[in-house]
C-alpha cells in the first residue's frame, strides 16, 4: 500500500495530526466555497504543492496514488457530457460542460486536500485524532483491530497465493477460481481462530473490554496547529473572496 509507506516515511510524520487535519479540512471547505474554475485550480495547486514541496512526498508516489481516482473522475465527467438530444439520439452535449468542469476541479481540490493528509499521516495517528474527537469506542476498536489485522491477513493471503502457485493452483482460469475459493474459505475460518487468539492475548494483558492505547505526544502541537490554522484560513479567505 503506497499511501501507507509514504505516510511513515513523510517529513511531516512528526507534525501533530490535529494541525494536518485542520489544514485538510480547510482545503475541503474552501473547495466547497469557491466558484470560479481559476480559483479552484489555484487551490488544488496550492494543496498539491504543500504535499509535494512541504512534506516532500515523492512526485511518482503522488501520481501513482492519484491515478485510480482520476480515472474514475474522468469516466464520471464524460458520462455527464453525453445525453439524448431533442431528436432522441445520444450525442455529445455541452450543456453540462460548466458543471462537469467545476465538479472535476472541485473534486481535484478535495482529493489534493485528502492526499496531503493521508500521505503524511499514518493511519494510527488519524485514529488517535478520531479518539480525541470522541468517535464511538466500538468504531475505534474495530478500526484499530482492522488496521493491524489487515497486514497480518494480507501477508497470510500473499503467502497462500504463493504456496498455491507453487502447486500450479493458478495455471488456468478454472484452477484460479478454485484456488481462490479454497484460500478465501480457509482465511474466513482463520478469522474466528485469530479473533480467539487475540482475545486470549488481550486477557493475558489484563484486558477490561476496551482496547486502550496511549497516544503519541506532540510537543509542538500548539505551534503547529496555529500555523495550520493560518494557512487554512488563507485558503478559506481566497475561496470566500471568490464566492462573495
Amino acid at each position: 500500500m503506497l499511501i501507507e509507506t509514504a505516510a511513515y516515511a513523510s517529513r511531516w510524520r512528526g507534525v501533530a495530526p490535529t494541525a494536518k487535519a485542520l489544514f485538510a479540512l480547510a482545503g475541503i471547505l474552501a473547495a466547497w466555497l469557491a466558484q470560479s474554475p481559476a480559483v479552484l485550480a489555484a487551490l488544488a495547486a496550492a494543496l498539491a504543492l504543500a504535499a509535494l514541496l512541504g512534506a516532500r512526498v515523492p512526485l511518482r508516489t503522488y501520481l501513482a496514488v492519484a491515478m485510480p481516482p482520476l480515472g474514475f473522475l474522468l469516466l464520471s465527467c464524460l458520462t455527464m457530457l453525453v445525453g439524448p438530444g431533442p431528436d432522441g439520439v445520444w450525442h455529445w452535449s455541452a450543456a453540462l460542460l460548466p458543471t462537469a468542469g467545476r465538479t472535476a476541479l472541485r473534486s481535484l481540490t478535495i482529493l489534493a486536500a485528502l492526499l496531503g493528509l493521508v500521505l503524511t499521516t499514518p493511519l494510527p495517528d488519524l485514529l488517535n485524532l478520531l479518539r480525541r474527537l470522541r468517535t464511538p469506542e466500538l468504531l475505534l476498536d474495530l478500526m484499530v483491530l482492522c488496521y493491524r489485522m489487515l497486514f497480518v491477513l494480507r501477508q497470510a493471503w500473499d503467502e497462500g497465493v504463493t504456496a498455491q502457485s507453487a502447486r500450479l493452483g493458478y495455471r488456468g482460469w478454472r484452477h484460479a477460481w478454485r484456488s481462490l475459493g479454497l484460500l478465501a474459505g480457509q482465511m474466513a475460518v482463520q478469522v474466528w481462530q485469530r479473533a480467539a487468539a487475540l482475545q486470549m492475548a488481550a486477557e493475558a494483558r489484563g484486558y477490561q473490554g476496551t482496547l486502550r492505547f496511549l497516544p503519541a505526544a506532540y510537543p509542538q502541537a500548539r505551534r503547529q496547529t496555529v500555523w495550520a490554522a493560518l494557512a487554512g484560513g488563507l485558503l478559506l479567505a481566497v475561496a470566500a473572496g471568490d464566492r462573495w
Partner: peptide, 17 residues
C-alpha cells in the same frame, strides 16, 4: 498477540489496563 499497529501504542496496552 499484537493488536496495535504502532510499537509504543501496543506496549502501552497492558499498563493502561
Amino acid at each position: 498477540q499484537l493488536f496495535s499497529a504502532q510499537v509504543e501504542e501496543d506496549v502501552s496496552f497492558g499498563p493502561l489496563n
